[in-house]
Structures are given as C-alpha cells and as structure tokens.
C-alpha cells in the first residue's frame, strides 16, 4: 500500500474519530463540520490513489528509513521536557544542547572535540540567559539548579 493511500484512510479514520469525540451542543457545530471535512478529504485522497487522476503528485516515497535517525533526539525532547521542571530551564538547556551535539557530531571523540563542544554549549547557554533573563526579563521556573 502506498503512503498516499495510507494517508487517505488515516484521515478518513481521523475524521470519524474527531466527529464522535465532538459533543452535540451548539459549541461543537464548527468542530463537527471540520471533522466531516477531514473525513471527506481523506476519502477523496484514498480514492484518488486508485484512479491516478485527481492527485497530481505520485506518492512521496518518504525518505525511507531516515526517520530512524531522529529517534534519539525525540528521546532528548521527552527528557528535556521533564528536566525543565526538575533541574531548571538553563541547566536543562545546557544539557539538551550538549547531548544533541554529542549524538550527531560527525567528528570522532577526543579531548579536544569534547572540550570544544562543552565550551560552545556553555557559551550558548550564557547567551540564552543574557537574552531571555537579563534583556527580556522572562521569568523561567526554577528547579534544583538554575
């Protein structure tokens, strides 16, 4: 099954789910209308994959398995979100920056590259601190650290 057909059926299903989630008071008039639109569009996209007339582009084959490479950073996002409240905004920003750089750096690890990465992360964190806390006076929640 190609991705377009999958997208079409996925959207059809989404439309049905969203429609059933909407309550029946007047406030849900708009959401119900949109859910119908989503379902219909899904159906048309799915149908078009059989006729090859309506949908101009051939299926975007996706980038294959490239998305597997982004799994570590998705894990970083989840950990980052947790660390923000536990350790504080700036310490977790430093850690997130450093870990992303570390995970994806092309150069091999050495004393020199490691200290360079730590230094850049620290400089970036200080710059962020200067921009948001000092210049813009944004109040960030504080955790155990800063």
């Amino acid at each position: 099954m190609n991705t377009d057909r999958l997208t079409g059926f996925g959207a059809l299903l989404l439309g049905i789910v969203l429609y059933s989630l909407a309550g029946d008071s007047e406030a849900y008039l708009f959401p119900r209308f949109i859910a119908v639109a989503i379902g219909l569009l899904g159906a048309v996209i799915a149908a078009a994959t059989f006729s090859r007339v309506l949908l101009p582009t051939a299926s975007t084959s996706g980038a294959g398995r490239a998305w597997l490479k982004s799994l570590p950073v998705l894990a970083v996002f989840i950990a980052y979100r947790w660390a923000m409240e536990t350790f504080g905004f700036y310490s977790s920003a430093f850690a997130a920056f450093l870990i992303i750089v570390w995970l994806y750096a092309p150069e091999p690890l050495s004393y020199r590259t490691a200290s360079k990465r730590i230094a850049i992360s620290a400089v970036f964190t200080v710059a962020i601190f200067a921009l948001f806390s000092l210049l813009l006076r944004v109040q960030t929640p504080r955790g155990m650290l800063l």
């Binding site: 200290s115 360079k116 730590i118 620290a122 200080v126």
Partner: peptide
C-alpha cells in the same frame, strides 16, 4: 582553540553561573 584554554573558559563560565544561583 586549545583544549586547555577551553577548559579554563568552561570553568570560568561554571563559576559565573554558580554565583548567579540563588543562595
């Protein structure tokens, strides 16, 4: 940037951040 210099900078920055922390 040599490794030693970088370590000094990092140490300085950490010291700076520590002083900014609430007592």
């Amino acid at each position: 940037m040599s490794g030693d210099n970088a370590t000094t900078i990092v140490a300085a920055i950490i010291a700076l951040v520590m002083t900014a922390l609430p007592g």
